[in-house]
Design a protein around this nucleic acid. Structure first.
Lengths: 199, 199
DNA sequence: CCCCTAAAGGTTCTGTAGTTCCGTTAAGCT
DNA sequence: AGCTTAACGGAACTACAGAACCTTTAGGGG
């Protein structure tokens, strides 16, 4: 008895649809994303898209799940500042890239309106933050930052200003902004700003 | 010759429509905002809404312009830490409030998709940030933070982690998060993290 | 206190996003 | 290789957001 068919055509359809969905999000934004258009671009039956994903929010949630899977390589230098600088530059390069930046904006926008999409987004960032937390833990062991410091909070402190600028200002995200974010976080961490006493 | 009519009925209609638009954004989010529904709730002709605001994005942009006008009172203590703590708590209280929080999320989402809405949002935050910049300038004069520090950047550094948490995690925005954000910013600022040498 | 007209309102029409139905294709097991 | 069925696809249908058209109300200058 055949139960599921994850390979072959199904996978090709999924890839084509997610790719097309990304294109639409970049070009026209979340507000103009309709499944019929995505189907047309993916050269796939519109019925298929409606059956498998149902709504715009569901499609974006699946796109996020896919994005969470492809993990970026993490650099590993000796100091917290250098590690976080590498992280900040990676984030800023991603957000400053026209396609990726627009995609992230659109995906964040989509998540504000639907619970399932929001969960997918939260999972995505949980994965990304957890990937970089070890470098803070090592810094704690080296004594660069006090014990009890929340590693996740420090990593988030690096990304936060970059996302805040992306969303609330018109100024471009330059490398200086990344380096500023990377410098502020370990300074504050060293002063004990992220100590939570439940490590 | 009569040129414009800003008072009376027109103003009442605008108020009713903006109020209804806010309600819809809070209850259903940006994705489900349609002008006919807003008109119904505001007990206003649907034609009127389409004529004056045209699109969802235009309506949200106007709502933002309205929000930018009503300015919140700024506290004025003696120290940068206390000033920024007051600011952080104000921001966190706003974002943690169910109605206000949802409204801000929706408005940010709407801005990602439309240039005019984005401009309105940027203006809104420009106004808010500029309102709090003086307390950083005073701290520079007092010698708490080095000369050349960008006041706007410091104020943004306080808000950034709160917005980042609101958008990318499911964890509630507690007062501890606000205090953490308020503590990290002046620490980093004192260490010269926000010096840009063009004050 | 009247006009004049800017702005609001009701109704009808249309384009299109989303649904439904049923026929077609191909994955994968034996 | 052949058969089963999960998954895809085309086309006709429906509902509703948004546009168009004309009528009615009330702000405010004379």
């Amino acid at each position: 008895m055949t139960v599921s068919r994850p390979g072959g055509r199904t996978a090709r359809v999924r890839a084509a649809v997610l790719r097309a969905a990304g294109d639409v999000l970049v070009e026209r934004g979340f507000g103009h994303l309709d499944l019929a258009d995505v189907a047309r671009r993916a050269v796939v039956g519109k019925t298929t898209v409606y059956r498998r994903w149902g709504t715009v929010a569901g499609l974006v949630a699946d796109l996020l799940a896919e994005m969470a899977e492809e993990s970026l390589p993490r650099t590993e230098t000796g100091s917290l500042l250098d590690d976080l600088t590498a992280n900040a530059r990676l984030v800023r390069d991603t957000l400053a890239d026209p396609r990726q930046g627009a995609l992230f904006k659109a995906v964040i926008a989509a998540a504000t309106g639907d619970r399932h999409t929001a969960e997918a987004l939260h999972r995505f960032y949980e994965v990304r933050v957890a990937e970089w937390a070890p470098c803070v833990r090592q810094a704690i062991e080296r004594g660069e930052v006090p014990a009890g410091t929340d590693p996740h909070e420090v990593v988030r402190a690096v990304s936060a200003p970059l996302y805040y600028r992306l969303l609330t200002t018109a100024t471009p995200l330059d490398r200086a902004a990344a380096d500023r974010a990377a410098r502020a976080a370990p300074t504050a961490a060293a002063a004990g700003a992220y100590v939570v006493w439940e490590p």
